[in-house]
């Protein structure tokens, strides 16, 4: 009797989560596979075209471009976020036991809680070539030659979007790493100080190796969050100029909700899902491998 009650309880505890998760997360993801075999504009006839959408993808220069751009985001954003958040966390940790630690931590974390849409709009106004703060400041300090259309030119647009992404993300990871540093038993670091290790030596040889676990989490998180970026390029540049800032997320949205190619959009999603799995597995392998 007890066993039966236990089983009932299990069903009670797990079924709401499994039901919602299965219906709204797993089912559409699997459904994408099936839909990717059709040509369908949402209205009218569905036409079975087999792997037609996948064939189209191989010769779709815009898709290939979007994949490259996504790769470029990862290439720049993940290391930048990693380096900056480690640097900031170590710097803040230096101020241990001073009342400043909390102030800085709170300030650095602040952008993370702001709505992404508002952050994009905030920086769009700052990058504005005519009325924006950035060009205004450059003019004020005599660097007129560096003023430009930050979001309107291919040379600067990508960097600007990456900057805003990093600006909005880095606080979270800094706090994450900082928490791990503060968890390190003081005896370990004190011992190093007695041995005469300098501040930076201490950071490098004592603290960093102890952070391996949290850094692995940070890398996986930044990777996934970089793959997810959407509102920054959408609102800052609409993916432009000439799609130079358009990640795959924006292209899927464009195909699904602007061109209404639902079948093709699903196929893009499927391919991207496979790539995400490969990337996540590789990252886990690599970071785990180091530890062993």
């Amino acid at each position: 009797m007890k066993r039966k009650g236990d089983r009932l309880a299990l069903v009670f505890f797990l079924s709401p989560a499994l039901f919602l998760y299965g219906l709204f997360v797993l089912y559409p993801s699997i459904q994408a596979l099936w839909m990717s075999m059709y040509q369908w504009r949402g209205l009218g006839e569905k036409t079975w075209i087999g792997f037609g959408n996948y064939e189209r993808m191989m010769s779709d220069a815009i898709f290939i471009n979007a994949m490259k751009i996504t790769g470029k985001y990862i290439l720049f954003q993940v290391p930048l976020v990693l380096i900056i958040s480690i640097g900031l966390a170590l710097t803040i940790a230096n101020l241990l036991k001073s009342r400043w630690l909390n102030t800085y931590r709170a300030t650095v974390f602040f952008p993370y809680i702001l709505p992404g849409v508002a952050i994009a709009m905030l920086w769009a106004t700052i990058f504005n070539p005519v009325s924006g703060m950035l060009n205004g400041l450059l003019n004020a300090i005599g660097l007129e030659q560096y003023t430009t259309e930050w979001l309107g030119r291919t040379e600067t647009a990508f960097g600007s979007v990456v900057f805003v992404n990093v600006w909005s993300m880095v606080g979270f990871y800094t706090v994450l790493i900082l928490a791990a540093i503060l968890n390190i038993p003081e005896e370990l670091t004190e011992a190093a100080e007695i041995d005469g290790a300098g501040k930076w030596q201490k950071s490098f040889y004592i603290i960093l190796p102890l952070l391996k676990d949290v850094l692995q989490v940070v890398i996986v998180f930044t990777l996934i969050n970089t793959l997810k970026i959407f509102e920054m390029p959408q609102l800052l540049t609409s993916g432009g100029p000439n799609r130079s800032t358009e990640p795959i997320s924006l292209y899927i949205y464009e195909q699904a909700f602007q061109n209404f190619n639902f079948g093709y959009a699903s196929a893009l999603g499927v391919i991207f899902l496979i790539l995400i799995f490969i990337a996540s597995m590789l990252t886990l392998r690599l970071t785990r491998g180091e530890k062993v």
Binding site: L23, F24, V25, Y27, P28, S29, Q31, A32, M35, G42, I224, L227, K228, F230, S249, I252, Y253, A256, F257, F262, G263, A265, S266, G269, F272, L273, I276, F277, S280
Partner: peptide, 15 residues
């Protein structure tokens, strides 16, 4: 944890 929301954008909308 790894599934970005936009992947299944079209099927989710149709569902």
């Amino acid at each position: 944890l790894m599934l970005p929301t936009f992947l299944a954008m079209a099927p989710l909308f149709l569902l």
